[in-house]
Design a protein around this nucleic acid. Structure first.
Length: 572
RNA sequence: CGGGGCGUGGCGCAGCCUGGUAGCGCAACAGCUUUGGGAGCUGUGAGUCGUGGGUUCAAAUCCCACCGCCCCGACCA
């Protein structure tokens, strides 16, 4: 490809809209352009890189035995009603209506469609197991699209679905996808970490997320410094018996005045005690019934954990009126003592003494609280978010460390949630009708592309891994007025193309500095500089974008050398 | 959805407070010079000032409504 005939609009400055480095580079290197909030056009260079990511995914899915299909983005609403997700996913789906006034949605994911297909087409244990996948456009009405391709309203996803006759088979399918994912991300040149995750709206039994570690990541995760434990912050467990040194405070509970001190910060300042000695009392409505949830004052309640502990379907923070009715006090003075609703307390409060809690009375708190002595019936559960510095829940002496990551893949064990709802059943060897056991597996293809950039860059621009670079080699003709430069550059370009290396020729009539800076910005793995200076010595310069190391070779040898390097790079 | 900010040639912005000829830098185009890390000179083209309404002799500027975009937050105690 010749630069002069390509649409490769590089930008000197990062547009204001771009916040994180990969988003800025996406725009500056001329890979994509924004149409509207969360909507992007891929320009030729960006599309080439995207297609390479897709191809890697396709090869690894095929290698793992998955079968490629293509399902419609436009889907009948009633299919979604059958699994209950028309309601749970209502707000994230785009709803449309056709001229017959039929209600349709633009698919945010495809469990319903694929399970419906399997329900129709698979009837016997002899047809199992099967795993299907597609690479297709998804639509999600994100609350706040952000960071370019990272969180878009329309994006490309690889989604796969496995169908098995029994648990052992489902496990094998899950493991096959898990290891395919490891290979995919490794081949794309991103380092990922698999972490335990919450299954969220997908439902099912358990899941792992593949995280690209990055400062700009939207997800928090914790990992043990000693053992293999790693989990999304939403999911991370606390150690069952955290070691806490409680103060030797045996004084009887006592009500003290705390005028106007409603928040943890205010109370802790007013009484001059650390927030960790305070009890944070939250009133929730669990399936419309009020409950109290207690966590240490310096910790955050994890609603996912509270929902799991209580078994509630719907969990919402109580409104002010309910709080006042339940506690008999204005908001800000709730406490566990004398509270007449079910109480759930975080593990970190077990055995707590010398604590401070709301008095269920305006402008008052209780001090010297001893949980076992002063609070009536309550249940302990893991309720708070885990955080860095906490003991590891799996090994004896490990400590958790916090990191940020970009979720590029997610694998789920779904069980029979969808197969039961949609009648995907088969006859087993003894003629018994059973629901198929499912798994589902997603990769954000467009997000992965941007994650590659986020993790492979420097001050000058992108440093594409060979496997997904839009082109593998850029030939820079330094001076178009110099016939020898032009001729050598053209010949190299032709020979590289003939050797199968998809080169990019910068044949623009621009200053050398402009071309060099653009080459660094676009970041193709190799740059061949054809200039008078080196040509006078009978060589061209080959510079590796990643390491910056330079090799000088006669033009005739350059092609062979590059072919070898690219091949080696793709294998490694 | 709540809060904040911004909409002025392709991009980045000034002008608005205090109403009176629409500007600057970059980019683009033409010519000449220049050619190993974002060149110089000369010239040229390009803007219904987000949209609609109002006030006024006169609106980019003041008022109202709407639209779009960006940031923060969204049960965060």
């Amino acid at each position: 490809m010749r630069w002069s005939r390509q649409l490769l609009p590089t930008l000197r400055e990062a547009p204001l809209e771009a916040e994180i480095p990969s988003h800025q580079l996406l725009l500056r290197a001329g890979l994509a352009r924004r149409l509207g909030a969360g909507l992007y056009t891929f320009l030729p260079a960006g599309l080439r890189a995207l297609r390479k990511v897709e191809q890697i995914i396709r090869e690894e899915m095929d290698r793992a035995g998955a079968l490629e299909v293509l399902m419609p983005a436009l889907q009948p609403t009633d299919l979604w009603a059958r699994t209950g997700r028309l309601e749970t996913l209502r707000d994230v789906m785009f709803h449309v209506r056709d001229r017959q006034e039929r209600d349709l949605v633009l698919g945010p994911t495809h469990e319903e469609v694929i399970t419906d297909l399997v329900a129709r087409e698979i009837n016997s244990w002899r047809q199992l197991p099967r795993t299907f996948y597609q690479i297709q456009t998804k639509f999600r009405d994100e609350i706040r699209p952000r960071f370019g391709l990272m969180r878009a309203k329309e994006f490309i996803m690889k989604d796969a679905y496995s169908f098995d006759a029994d648990e052992a088979g489902a496990d094998a399918s899950y493991r096959a996808m898990y290891s395919a994912y490891e290979r995919i991300f490794q081949r794309c040149g991103v380092r990922t970490k698999a972490v335990e995750a919450d299954t969220g709206a997908m439902g099912g039994k358990s899941s792992h997320e593949f995280m690209v570690l990055a400062e700009s990541g939207e997800d928090g995760l914790v990992e043990c410094e000693r053992c293999a434990y790693a989990a999304n912050r939403e999911r991370a467990e606390s150690a069952t018996a955290p070691r806490i040194e409680w103060p030797e405070d045996r004084a009887p509970a006592e009500i003290v005045a705390t005028p106007g001190a409603r928040t943890i910060e205010q109370v802790s300042q007013y009484l001059d005690v650390a927030p960790s000695r305070l009890v944070k009392t939250l009133i929730y409505l669990a399936d419309s019934r009020p409950i109290a949830a207690l966590v240490p004052g310096d910790r955050e309640l994890n609603e996912i954990k509270l929902r799991r502990a209580t078994g509630a379907e719907a969990l919402t923070l109580a409104d002010d009126a309910t709080i006042e009715r339940v506690t008999g006090a204005p908001v800000g003075f709730a406490g566990p003592i004398g509270l007449n609703v079910p109480i759930w307390a975080d593990l970190w409060l077990r055995g707590g003494r010398g604590l401070i809690a709301g008095a269920n009375r305006a402008d008052a708190h209780v001090v010297h609280v001893d949980f076992e002595r002063d609070v009536g019936e309550l249940a302990f559960a893991d309720l708070a978010f885990a955080r860095g510095g906490d003991p590891c829940p799996r090994c004896s002496d490990g400590v958790l460390r916090e990191q940020r990551g970009i979720e590029v893949g997610h694998v789920f064990r779904l069980g029979t949630k969808y197969s039961r709802a949609l009648g995907a059943e088969f006859l087993d060897e003894s003629g018994v009708r059973k629901p198929v056991i499912m798994g589902c597996y997603g990769i954000g293809v467009t997000r992965t592309l941007q994650a590659v950039i986020e993790q492979n860059r420097d001050e000058q621009g992108i440093r594409w891994p060979i496997s997904v670079a839009p082109w593998s080699v850029e030939v820079v003709v330094v001076n178009l007025q110099n016939a020898a430069c032009v001729e050598t550059g053209e010949r190299l370009y032709a020979e590289l193309g003939a050797a199968g290396l998809d080169p990019l020729l910068d044949d623009r009539d621009a200053r050398p500095g402009v071309k060099f800076n653009d080459a660094d910005l676009l970041g193709l793995p190799f740059r061949v500089t054809v200039g008078e200076r080196s040509l006078a010595r009978g060589v061209v310069e080959i510079r590796r974008r990643a390491g910056g190391d330079v090799v000088e070779l006669p033009p005739a040898e350059a092609v062979t050398w590059l072919v070898g390097q690219v091949r080696k790079g793709l294998e490694g």
